[in-house]
Design a protein around this nucleic acid. Structure first.
Lengths: 136, 136
DNA sequence: TTTGATGCAAACTTTTTGCAGCTAC
DNA sequence: GTAGCTGCAAAAAGTTTGCATCAAA
């Protein structure tokens, strides 16, 4: 299958072994919108029932280490994202829905084009290393 | 104690019963920087050893419901914050330290004045109600 | 007196870990 | 063949829940 060859290449380019489980996780990340580990697990089981949840976590960890995947902490769960260009997210407080918002990095922050949404809060978190940890 | 009277007033103004446990949680939130439930519990136990962790969660929930406290989901934990004016956060990927960044709501997004920090990512999340949930 | 909060313990959810066996390279 | 990955099961970590008791109003 052509797409599997692509997954293989993607993995190997990033110094990771190409395994069927990893291909399935990447496929799940591309098919589903901001899935959590459990949603990926569900997707994976339809394709390879023997696949375990621990493997999903392992694979996500590796992909994240290679910079292929972003992680989003929200209401006590972790959501994963393969879109690597910079973008923001809107989160529905009620149904939990998570959607992308396009805003190029460094551009002006304005009330979003999300006229249909009712926005009432905004959280911006910078990630990096504090002065102390840069020395270790 | 004067400060307890203040806590009492704050609680009652927001329609909440004033209990010693709630006063302690508010005090902890003001003393500690972005504590999680466990840090608040530790602080509380030094002052009233009988106080339980479940009560900490209960109180935080009530305070949050009254809009007195903000919650921050980060690396699988929940951090709490009583500074209610709009501000952002910097998070150290290594030691987990969380610090405030002042940036008035709606102002231009620039590389922060945090010259000492080494920033490598930024996450912006809008919170609100999606179109569907506004009808419920 | 009544309504709502607390404390305790147990349950639940999500994520992590250890290890034996298997597989990609 | 060897390093590294997978699957399983158990444990850990954080949060939630149910219920009897207690305190604020």
């Amino acid at each position: 299958m052509a797409s599997e060859l692509t997954f293989d290449a993607l993995l190997r380019e990033n110094g990771l072994r190409a395994t069927p489980q990893r291909a399935i996780v990447i496929e799940a990340l591309m098919e589903l919108s901001h899935p959590d580990a459990d949603a990926i697990f569900g997707y994976a089981q339809e394709r390879q029932p023997s696949m375990s949840l621990a493997t999903v976590y392992n694979v996500l960890d590796k992909l994240r280490g290679a910079g292929l995947v972003h992680m989003l902490d929200l209401h006590g769960r972790r959501y994963f994202d393969v879109r690597l260009e910079h973008h923001d997210h809107v989160h529905c407080r009620q149904c939990g829905q998570l959607a992308d918002v396009n805003r190029p990095f460094g551009t002006r922050l304005v009330v979003p084009q999300l006229t249909a949404w009712q926005i009432d809060d905004q959280a911006l978190i910078w990630e990096g290393l504090c002065p102390e940890c840069q020395q270790g």
